[in-house]
Structures are given as C-alpha cells and as structure tokens.
C-alpha cells in the first residue's frame, strides 16, 4: 500500500474493474450493440486496438444515439487511422446528421496520408456540401498541397458557398501570389455581395494590412 510506482503502473494499469465480458475482438464487436451505453462506449474505446473493427465502428456510428459512445467511436477510429478509416468516414459527409459530419471532418483532418489522395475526388463531387466539407478538412490537414488545393477551388469551383469557404480558409494560409486569383472571384460572382466582403477580409489578412 502507499504510492504506486511508475513501473507498477505499466505492469498493472489501475483498472480494477472486473470485466463482465470478454475483451477479444468478437466480444467487443458484440458489446458495441449492448443495451447499455456505458458498455458500448467501453467496447468502442477498446476496439481502438483492432484495425479489423473499422467497418463495424463506422456502421455503428450511423445508428448510435448516445453522444458519449459516438465520441468514443471517433476516438478509436482516429487511433486506428488507416486508409479504411478514411474510406469509412467519407460517406458520413453526405449524411443529414451534423454531429456525425463534423465528427468525421475532425477525424479526417488528422489523417493526411489516408485523406490526401482522396481530396481531388471530394473536391470534384457533384454535391457542393461535400465540397465544402472537403475544404473544411483541408483547413487542418497537415498536407503540403492543402493551400494549392484550396486555391484550385477558388479558381474553378462554380458554387459561391464552396468558393467563399475556401477563401475564408486561405485567409489563414494564403500567400501574396494567390491574391489575383482571390481578387478575381469578385468578377465571377458579381451579384453576391458577401463575396466582396469575404475577398476583402482574406486579402487584408494575406497582405498583412488588416
């Protein structure tokens, strides 16, 4: 008794609960559908150690009503962080549930290797909402091509909301070389007063006079 030493922490992590269920993959997958949210949450957390659980976790996300369990599922997917995670989360961008969409964006932002080669397809999606979420992903994606991808949106996307979202994100990472392209957006959408405001705000930031 007394203060537990570091080596003991590692040898016997302090979780003295008696496990009610098996903690192998099959047991955890079963518990992901338990009646008790707490059991589902712990199953979701422990499934972080199983890369094979990605599809089950993504499927559960779409029907899981408890926000604490969703949070655990997102956490585990992020920990796993494979290509399969990106593949499983991208369809959520098309869903109606804002919580799921935002959660998916947050996880995808953290997976530059898995997401980078999927960005072009997302930015070419026929649904402008999906393209906006793709720009949101780019906002925090640690990928060297992120500014260039956003610039391409500014130059070529035909939907004003997608373009202004990209301009807003470029306000943080844009460079003076991008100024003509951003400025030109005003001419592309002459009847959208918000565009002028978005462009001016971004330019002030980029040129350092605002």
């Amino acid at each position: 008794m007394g203060l537990v030493k570091r080596a003991e922490h590692r040898a016997a992590p302090s979780r003295p609960h008696i496990r009610k269920y098996g903690r192998d993959l099959q047991g955890l997958l079963a518990q992901l559908h338990d009646d008790q949210a707490k059991a589902r949450r712990w199953a979701a957390r422990d499934l972080a150690a199983h890369t094979e659980a990605v599809s089950a976790l993504c499927e559960r996300l779409q029907v899981e009503p408890d926000p604490t369990v969703r949070e655990a599922i997102f956490g585990s997917l992020l920990t796993i962080g494979t290509e399969a995670v990106a593949e499983g989360l991208i369809p959520l961008l098309r869903g109606e549930d804002a919580g799921l969409r935002n959660g998916a964006v947050e996880i995808l932002q953290q997976l530059p290797d898995a997401v980078g080669h999927r960005i072009a397809a997302l930015l070419a999606d026929s649904d402008p909402d999906v393209r906006i979420f793709a720009v949101d992903i780019l906002q925090d994606l640690a990928h060297p091509d992120a500014p260039a991808w956003m610039l391409a949106v500014v130059e070529a996307d035909e939907h004003v909301n997608v373009v202004t979202t990209a301009i807003d994100r470029l306000a943080e990472v844009g460079t003076p070389e991008m100024v003509p392209a951003i400025q030109a957006v005003k001419d592309r959408f002459p009847n959208e007063p918000f565009v002028g405001f978005a462009v001016d705000t971004a330019l002030k930031r980029i040129l350092g006079n605002g």
Partner: peptide
C-alpha cells in the same frame, strides 16, 4: 496512506 494504493498520473 499505508492502507491504500494511490496512483498519481
């Protein structure tokens, strides 16, 4: 303290 284990993280 002598009766209880305490873990500090």
């Amino acid at each position: 303290i002598d009766e209880v284990d305490v873990e500090i993280v």
